[in-house]
Computed example of a mutant assay.
Amino acid sequence: MAIEVEVIRAWPRRFEWVRVSLPEPATVADALAASGFDTRQCDGYAIHGERTTADAELRDGDRLELLRPLQADPKESRRRRAQRPR
Rank of each mutant, 00 (worst) to 15 (best):
L64P: 02
Q71S: 13
A34E: 14
P25H: 05
S35H: 13
Y45V: 05
S77E: 15
C42I: 05
G49W: 03
E65S: 02
A29Q: 07
A82C: 06
R78S: 09
H48I: 04
A82I: 11
V28W: 01
I8H: 00
E50Y: 13
Q83P: 00
A46K: 02
W17V: 14
A82Q: 10
R13M: 11
R80D: 09
Y45Q: 01
V28N: 04
S77C: 12
D38K: 09
Q41V: 01
D30T: 10
T52F: 03
R13F: 13
T52D: 10
L58G: 07
F15A: 08
R63C: 12
R59S: 12
D55P: 05
D38A: 11
I47K: 00
A29V: 03
D60T: 02
G36K: 13
D55N: 12
L70E: 11
V28D: 08
Q71H: 06
R79D: 11
E24T: 10
G49V: 06
S21Y: 01
R79A: 05
Y45F: 15
E76N: 07
T52Y: 02
E65H: 07
Q41F: 12
P69F: 04
R80T: 09
R79F: 08
P12L: 10
I8F: 01
G44M: 01
W17E: 07
A31E: 02
T53N: 13
D73I: 05
L66V: 02
G49Y: 12
D60K: 02
Q83C: 12
V28F: 05
E24C: 05
D62Y: 02
F15G: 00
R9C: 13
R59M: 08
A10D: 09
E65A: 13
Q83K: 15
R13Y: 09
D55R: 07
R68L: 10
A72V: 14
A31C: 03
A54E: 12
I47P: 03
E16D: 15
R68A: 11
L64T: 01
R51A: 09
P69G: 05
R63V: 11
D60I: 03
S77M: 13
T53H: 14
E50D: 08
R59V: 11
F37R: 03
D30I: 05
V18Y: 01
R9P: 00
Q83M: 15
P74I: 02
A31R: 06
L32V: 10
R79S: 14
Y45E: 00
L67I: 04
V18H: 11
E76P: 00
Q83E: 15
P25N: 10
E50L: 09
D62G: 05
D38S: 06
D38T: 02
C42D: 01
E57F: 09
E24D: 10
S35L: 03
S35V: 10
Q71L: 07
T53K: 15
S35M: 08
R19Q: 12
R9S: 08
T27V: 07
E50Q: 14
W11K: 12
P25C: 08
L66Y: 04
C42M: 02
T53P: 00
I8C: 11
L70S: 06
D62S: 02
F37T: 07
R81G: 05
G36I: 11
I8L: 11
Q41P: 01
T52A: 14
A54M: 14
D38F: 01
R68I: 01
E16H: 10
Q71C: 03
A10F: 02
